[in-house]
Amino acid sequence: MEQNAHNEHVHYDAEASKIGMWLFIFTELLLFGGLFIVYSVYRFMNQEAFHLAAEELNTTIGAINTVLLLVSSMTIAVSTTTLQLKKKGLTLFLLGITVIIGVVFLVNKYFEWGAKIEHGIWPGSEHLKTAFSQGEILFFGLYYVMTGLHALHIIIGLIIILFAAHRVYKGTVNENRAALLENAGLYWHLVDLIWIFLFPLFYLIH
């Protein structure tokens, strides 16, 4: 049985925070899960149109963003190890790299969306409604909703990482109390995990 719940002086329970984070990740997975259901149904109903619409997306940008997220996932994972090894400076450095990569991802996304919008493709736009088939409209609708929600999660993830980095800097997150950093890592990996599926579903289907 867990011993620590009744230890009066120690309210810190790393495993409780970890499960809490995992449970939260489950809800996030199901949140995106709902969208994946919508995607799979419409993909099934409009296969040709989805392939056609995916031609509009730039595989290179998608691939670059995939590589970026994978690398950032690695850097934050390594930072949990360096924290255990009491290398505070290196930990902060790695977190900084992670944040920078995350921002670059968002910048890429900004230009990608910008290019689409310049071509008159956005949800509800006249061009989309007149020049594209229903399946394509759905594809772009889902593209904006899913990558948009994902980008929102990137932003939330960055905030959590910055918060954790601040606590590492202050020393309240350290090798004995690493839960906050580990949870920030878990959240960031979730963002990565979602992207691992978004990338092939939107960029690799033509």
Partner: peptide
């Protein structure tokens, strides 16, 4: 007007 549940835009209300 994303269209995901709008039959006019190809969406399926049953979904």
């Amino acid at each position: 007007g994303v269209g995901v549940f709008d039959p006019a835009l190809g969406g399926d209300p049953i979904l």
